[in-house]
Design a protein around this nucleic acid. Structure first.
Lengths: 197, 197
DNA sequence: AAGAGACTAGACTGTCCAGTCTAATTTCGG
DNA sequence: CCGAAATTAGACTGGACAGTCTAGTCTCTT
């Protein structure tokens, strides 16, 4: 019952998925199947050969998109260097046009697809925060940060990194989304709050 | 040309506006005029007597909603007390179901109504942050906080207060939206980062 | 080269919706 | 109480869209 294993032409399937991904991102779930088909240079019936319904296509696209929003950090170097690298990566992934658009589509459609939204949260943002918290916990145990709730600390850092700039992006205010010094400013503020006593 | 001053029955107009506000909040811009009319217990034609188009009705509703998201702080007492009061109010206004729903609708429709989105940002979130920054600036000048960019500090505090919980609300994860200790935890972390040296 | 099955083009159905129009009914000020 | 204007119910237009169906074309595999 899982995935129908019909042997579609892989290149067609790929083109369709990519077109659907872009279309849902840029125009939301309400984009028409015709527009997706046109973007993929594919007949409408082909869409329905590959997916039983628009909902199913959307679900597949969301699955694929989750991975692109995962931000992992690697714990080389000192804490400040590690968090700076994480912060830059986090901001780049979430504040680029694609990151903003995925956020917009997911939050707009969450009431219609609550299961999908939950899965998105758990495998995306929650996962990112969990790994960051693991790193922070170790740093706390080694005395490189003060003892505190690592989940809370991770929540604070990620919030500080993107909250307002994401709102700007969501509301289409293109201004200063990429001020390079921002990550440093945030990490320094975070380190003041969580420095060893 | 501005607003047509026809003397509609005020009670009808009010009922219509409230119904439209709830409808747009709960179902997004795509809610049908018929549903809004039904909710207001009003004929569809009456909607078009009061507003020239769906867009115009939406614009009016957004105008009215902006005020409900403004959070002002009053600067009595010490810094911690003031920020705690602000934090509780800010969280309550933005994380309640209505606050979440307005955020969802605004960000979802920003591509279609960029002017409206810009106005919303300036008169809502930007205004709130600006007033907070003014307070923080004074506190810095009085030596009750360390000298720093007050706009940046305001951005950090507001981000820390709601970022993750707002995402939870947007994605329909009802869990723990109202942990009472959260504001205190955030304000304390903020004060560590911006305490006098 | 032949056949199976993927792909295509386009017609078609049923539904929903924004906005208009009309003809009746209600309400309210004078 | 009367008349102007607001309100109402419902029909109607035109367009969009999800999903189905069909008949024909293309493309791999054997």
């Amino acid at each position: 019952m899982a995935s129908v294993v019909a042997d579609f032409r892989p290149e067609t399937h790929q083109r369709l998925l990519e077109a659907a991904c872009e279309a849902f991102r840029e125009e939301g779930y309400q984009v028409s199947i015709d527009r997706i088909a046109a973007r993929a240079k594919v007949a409408r019936q082909t869409v329905y050969n590959h997916f039983p319904s628009k909902e199913a296509l959307f679900a597949e696209v969301v699955q694929q998109s989750i991975a692109s929003l995962l931000v992992v950090l690697d714990g080389d170097g000192d804490v400040r260097t590690t968090l700076m690298a994480f912060g830059d990566l986090y901001r780049n992934k979430l504040l680029c046009p694609e990151g903003i658009a995925i956020f917009r589509t997911m939050t707009a459609e969450a009431p219609r697809f609550p299961k999908l939204a939950q899965q998105f949260f758990r495998q995306g943002p929650a996962q990112t925060r969990k790994r960051l918290a693991q790193y922070l916990k170790r740093a706390m145990q080694e005395g490189r940060l003060r003892e505190a709730d690592p989940d809370f600390a991770a929540e604070m850092l990620t919030a500080m990194l993107v909250d307002l700039d994401r709102l700007r992006g969501l509301l289409n205010l293109e201004t200063e989304l990429k001020r390079p010094g921002k990550t440093e400013q945030v990490v320094d503020a975070f380190l003041r709050a969580f420095a060893p006593e």
